[in-house]
Amino acid sequence: MPGADLPRVPGVLTARQFLQSAESIAATQESDGALPWFTGGHTDPWDHIENAMALTAAGLLDEARAAYLWSAKTQRAEGSWPSQFRDGVIENEHSDTNFCAYIATGVLHYSTSTGDYVFAREMWPVVRDAVNFVLSLQQGRFGEIHWSAGPQGSSGEALLTGCSSIFHSLRCALALADQLGDPQPEWEVAALRLGHALRDHPEAFLDKARYSMDWYYPVLSGAIRGRAAQARIDTHWPTFVVPDLGIRCVSDQPWVTGAETCELVLTLDAIGDTSRALHLFTNMQHLRESDGSYWTGLVFTDGKRWPEERTTWTAAATLLAADALTRTTPAHNIFRTLLPHLPTPTTCTCPEPSTP
């Protein structure tokens, strides 16, 4: 049963509403434990874990454990997952490295929330194999990680948002390794290299600057902190933030989205900008439905919901943001102070690239 001490944001979201949103996620869970985007929709390994984290925050632990066991059952021998399932059938066999790494974030969140290290130890081989698969696609140039792999090999391309999320997942994996007494020093080296690429080598990544996630994810992940983080957020604030509604998913489209807004809430909270975080969290509640679910987004030029979907992962991001803002569950700070700090050199000493 859910615990009595659930996150509540005064004047914005009650504890009962928090639980109601978690229950709207749980209502979509399939018999094998999968948590799809919505009933009848597809399941991807990243959003599945985000949903499991929200269920954990709400005390729906049976459902959360079933979700993690689904991840264990569907993992392939080399540590990866297909990037898309529907009704237990694989729809896309390619593996997304960011999707695969996120299991580390989820299991650490669960063990920290519950103190159930027996279950964390049961899941540890899944996490270990997933991280090792992801790091097999790390590149020697700067430490970036290719975003996708399939039967013909890797994509040959790295994404800033995906690698930022992987950086956070690597830090979670290192924290989990410490919890379980199985240190992985080579993962720390890999994380240091990846963090360096995220901070100092934008040329290592495809240019996706029109997407808001490329703006805030290097900060959310912890790769960029301090004054540089605040400057990054402030510089692009007018580009993406739509007053009283939330943030744009894409800079040149009149579309605000709930999940991206709540991830920015988590980002602002992580760097101590709590006033703006709470303001944004309050503003995005126009996406909430009476059953506790959340619409994905709103086209603000015509006031229409688009797409016409209430996605579980939008509700999940909202619940994780509420927990972070209210410091309620033991894992509320997984994007802020829970993880060990990795050294961040102040200057890049890489040689200048040679000119042809």
Results as ranks from 00 to 15, higher is better:
325 L>G: 01
14 T>P: 03
52 A>T: 08
71 S>P: 12
28 T>M: 14
127 V>M: 11
251 S>P: 03
321 A>W: 05
283 N>Q: 08
239 T>V: 15
242 V>E: 13
264 L>H: 04
247 I>Y: 09
316 A>R: 03
274 T>Y: 12
29 Q>G: 10
108 L>K: 13
47 D>I: 08
232 R>P: 03
32 D>S: 10
126 V>D: 10
121 R>C: 05
241 V>K: 04
348 C>M: 15
276 R>T: 15
73 K>V: 12
152 Q>H: 09
6 L>H: 00
13 L>M: 15
203 E>Y: 01
265 V>T: 12
341 H>R: 09
191 A>Y: 06
245 L>Q: 08
106 G>D: 06
2 P>R: 01
332 H>V: 07
142 F>W: 11
156 G>W: 05
252 D>R: 09
113 S>W: 04
167 F>E: 07
88 G>N: 11
217 Y>Q: 07
207 D>K: 14
148 S>L: 10
108 L>Y: 11
214 D>F: 07
54 A>P: 09
141 R>E: 06
258 G>F: 02
33 G>P: 11
149 A>S: 01
266 L>P: 11
23 E>S: 09
17 Q>M: 00
75 Q>F: 08
86 R>L: 15
105 T>M: 05
85 F>W: 14
94 H>Y: 11
167 F>H: 09
234 D>C: 14
4 A>T: 11
155 S>R: 03
288 R>L: 12
109 H>T: 13
272 G>Y: 02
354 S>G: 10
113 S>V: 01
115 G>L: 04
154 S>V: 00
219 V>N: 00
145 I>R: 14
269 D>P: 07
28 T>P: 10
100 C>Y: 00
160 L>M: 11
145 I>Y: 09
120 A>F: 04
106 G>E: 06
228 A>Y: 03
307 P>M: 11
324 A>F: 00
113 S>C: 07
260 E>I: 08
321 A>D: 05
89 V>C: 03
339 L>W: 11
340 P>I: 08
145 I>P: 14
108 L>I: 14
130 A>P: 09
39 T>Q: 15
325 L>H: 06
221 S>F: 06
125 P>N: 07
239 T>H: 15
34 A>R: 05
274 T>P: 09
217 Y>G: 02
203 E>K: 03
145 I>A: 13
208 K>F: 10
305 R>W: 15
295 W>K: 05
74 T>C: 04
93 E>M: 12
179 Q>F: 11
176 L>Q: 11
88 G>L: 12
234 D>V: 13
254 P>M: 14
307 P>V: 12
183 P>M: 06
257 T>H: 08
218 P>A: 02
282 T>I: 05
166 I>E: 00
285 Q>N: 06
275 S>I: 12
88 G>C: 12
259 A>V: 15
266 L>D: 06
201 H>P: 02
220 L>K: 07
33 G>Q: 10
283 N>H: 05
351 P>W: 00
236 H>F: 07
339 L>N: 06
311 T>N: 14
31 S>D: 04
201 H>A: 12
17 Q>C: 01
194 L>E: 12
281 F>T: 01
49 I>S: 14
289 E>R: 07
120 A>W: 06
